[in-house]
Lab assay of single mutants.
Amino acid sequence: TDVTFHVNGRNLHLKGADEELLRRIEELIRRGADIEELEKAVKEWEK
């Protein structure tokens, strides 16, 4: 799945995201995470 999140005026584009990653990103956004936290979560998922 390709999806782009718009967070605090910045874009986080995910290519090939699975349901697990999407749920994790949505949860972080609900908690008020900043873009750096979201990018870190994506990097951890990519490993």
Rank of each mutant, 00 (worst) to 15 (best):
G16A: 07
E36R: 05
A41H: 11
V42T: 03
D18H: 10
E27R: 13
N8V: 01
L12R: 00
K43D: 10
I29M: 06
L38D: 00
K15L: 05
V7S: 02
K47T: 11
D2V: 08
N11T: 15
T1S: 10
V7R: 01
K43Q: 12
E37V: 10
T4P: 01
R10M: 13
F5M: 07
I35L: 07
G9R: 01
T4N: 07
R10C: 10
T1Q: 12
L21V: 08
R31M: 09
N8M: 05
K47A: 11
D34S: 07
L12K: 00
D18C: 06
G9P: 00
V42R: 02
E39D: 05
A41W: 09
N8C: 12
I25C: 07
R23A: 09
I35H: 03
R23N: 08
E26P: 03
L22S: 02
D2R: 03
T4A: 04
K47E: 10
K47Q: 11
K47F: 13
T1G: 09
E36Y: 09
A17W: 05
G32F: 04
E20A: 14
G9D: 05
L38S: 00
I29L: 07
L28F: 08
E26N: 12
I35R: 01
E46S: 14
K47R: 13
T4R: 04
E44N: 12
A41R: 08
H13K: 08
L12D: 00
E26Y: 15
E27P: 02
L14Q: 00
K15W: 07
L21C: 04
L12S: 00
E19C: 10
I25Y: 00
D34F: 08
G16Y: 06
G16L: 05
V7I: 09
L14N: 00
D18S: 15
K47H: 11
E46I: 13
A41Q: 10
E27Y: 15
K15E: 04
E36I: 06
L22P: 00
I25P: 00
R31D: 08
D18M: 04
V42M: 05
D2F: 06
I35S: 01
V42G: 02
V3Q: 04
R24I: 09
E37A: 10
A17I: 09
R31I: 07
I25T: 01
L12Y: 11
A33R: 06
K40S: 11
K15C: 05
D34W: 06
T1E: 08
H13C: 07
D18A: 11
E20R: 13
L14Y: 01
E44V: 12
K43R: 12
E26T: 14
E19Q: 13
H6P: 12
A41I: 13
L22R: 05
L22H: 03
E39G: 05
T4L: 05
N11R: 10
E44W: 11
G32W: 02
F5W: 02
A17R: 02
K43M: 11
D2W: 12
E36P: 12
W45G: 04
A41D: 04
E39L: 14
I29P: 00
H13S: 08
E37F: 09
R23Y: 11
E19G: 11
I29C: 03
T1W: 14
E26K: 15
H6Y: 11
K47L: 14
E19W: 14
E36Q: 06
D18P: 14
I35F: 14
A33H: 09
E39S: 06
N11Q: 14
V3P: 10
E36L: 07
G9A: 01
E36V: 07
N11Y: 15
L38I: 06
E44D: 11
R23G: 07
A33F: 13
N11V: 15
T1M: 13
E46N: 14
V42Q: 03
R10S: 12
T4Q: 05
E27M: 15
E36S: 06
K43G: 09
L12T: 00
E37I: 10
G9C: 04
W45T: 04
L22M: 07
A41N: 07
L22E: 01
I25M: 07
R31P: 00
